[in-house]
Design a protein around this nucleic acid. Structure first.
Lengths: 235, 235
DNA sequence: GCTCGCTTGTGACCACGTGAACAAGCGGCG
DNA sequence: CGCCGCTTGTTCACGTGGTCACAAGCGAGC
């Protein structure tokens, strides 16, 4: 116990981690209805996955269910919140206050879910100093002070693509170790920093691909085949 | 060839499809610099993946490279755009004009990338009739007319969670067959409809999980272990 | 025209995640 | 107190995706 090797936390697969928030939301819903216990099957239905996966995912957290009965909703909520690190608030900073950044700053849903927006930064002098949802926008150069001042660990990048890497670097230098990137570009970070990205254009293009396939299936095969047979480019 | 079985298009793995837009963006960047050809290694670097994966992904589209040289940027751009269905515009409708919907409607990036916003709908009578970015918001009841009128195949849901399923159902009834859901809830659709979801709170919670792990690794193991040993809920 | 270096395309292998099936175990009922 | 139904937790088989390594093939240079 007092060994030099610290006890390794259970290894939870990434795919499972990505589903935990879904379960959490479903559990909150069930708790709101006053349901005392919930079966894996019901939880699966609410979360849009299948029951076997739910049980396996939950088993990574521990054996919190009761055979023949199900899972105690409140208890599971507590354990899951703890595992997800939601027992404390995580202050976030939003960088870039264009259309999207503005919307994110105004969106109250973050604070409700334990992610209060503690600070806003931008590089544009016309935006710096303005007030959004009660928070004054400060200059991106002040990131270091802001981050230590508010104990910020999570940063959201909503800048244009060209500025994203620069902003990410500054955030990391300021001690931010988790970044959510909305800018349509690749941002590289050191391995100890977590990075997730959300790209709206990419999502639409993926939908477009399948839409295209559906359209092509409706008898447009010939045209497609012809295009495929097009000669290589001029050498 | 004139068989009853229509020629099956190459099967492209979902994971590959999700990366194609990244390659496309990198190729556009390279084309902007005037680069005539690009190697898989360079393309990998620009897209943030590894070279072997790039080659395998591109090979699903066909043998469009030249050994010893690389890929012709313009030609590959053309082939990829065609495969992704980006040779034509896809008109989209946005449902729900709260903070996020508003930002999406104002965001010019969609039109530029071939996804012009053709219509806006909302259920709130105070919002219906207002003008956003030159488009008049119409009532969600008119979805059927609007969809056929504008040939809309892609819908974006930016409503509150409670309304999302209802809106999705209406979109599908109106002929929309691809949906991008921003509402924090599970939406179920028939199998022939494509659905993708983006949930900001979920993304933050995933980051929170890993942040929590990092924090726990810094000597807070004892407290964690204690919490884990907590007794089961009152029976 | 031949060789050599470079880059693609692909086959084999491995890891991970998924889905089904089943034993273990809990609570309720007779 | 023992049986029975129900639900979990786990095991096993499978499919998908990722990585590596290498043969195939193209172009340049001599």
């Amino acid at each position: 116990m007092a060994e030099g090797t610290k006890r390794q936390a259970r290894k939870i697969p990434e795919a499972t981690v990505a589903r935990l928030p879904l379960y959490l939301r479903s559990l909150l819903e069930a708790a709101g209805d006053g349901t005392p216990t919930i079966s894996s099957e019901r939880l699966a239905e609410l979360s849009g996955v299948n029951a076997a996966k739910v049980r396996k995912d939950l088993s990574y957290l521990g054996s919190y269910g009761t055979r023949g009965v199900g899972y105690d909703v409140e208890y599971l909520l507590f354990q899951m919140s703890r595992e997800l690190g939601l027992t404390k608030d995580w202050h976030v900073v939003i960088a870039g206050l264009g259309n999207l950044g503005h919307a994110l700053a105004n969106y109250g849903g973050f604070g409700d879910r334990g992610f209060p927006v503690a600070a806003l930064v931008d590089a544009d002098p016309r935006v710096v100093g303005t007030d959004i949802n009660g928070i004054t926008v400060r200059h991106v150069d002040e990131l270091g002070d802001i981050a230590t001042e508010h104990h910020i660990a999570i940063g959201i990048i909503a800048t244009p693509a060209a500025a994203a890497q620069e902003v990410a670097d500054r955030m990391i230098a300021a001690g931010v170790s988790s970044i959510l990137n909305f800018a349509p570009t690749i941002v590289t970070v050191p391995p100890e920093v977590s990075l997730r990205k959300v790209d709206l254009a990419v999502e639409l293009q993926i939908l477009s691909f399948y839409q295209q396939r559906k359209a092509a299936a409706d008898g447009a095969g010939a045209r497609l085949a012809a295009a495929e047979a097009a000669p290589k480019p001029p050498s």
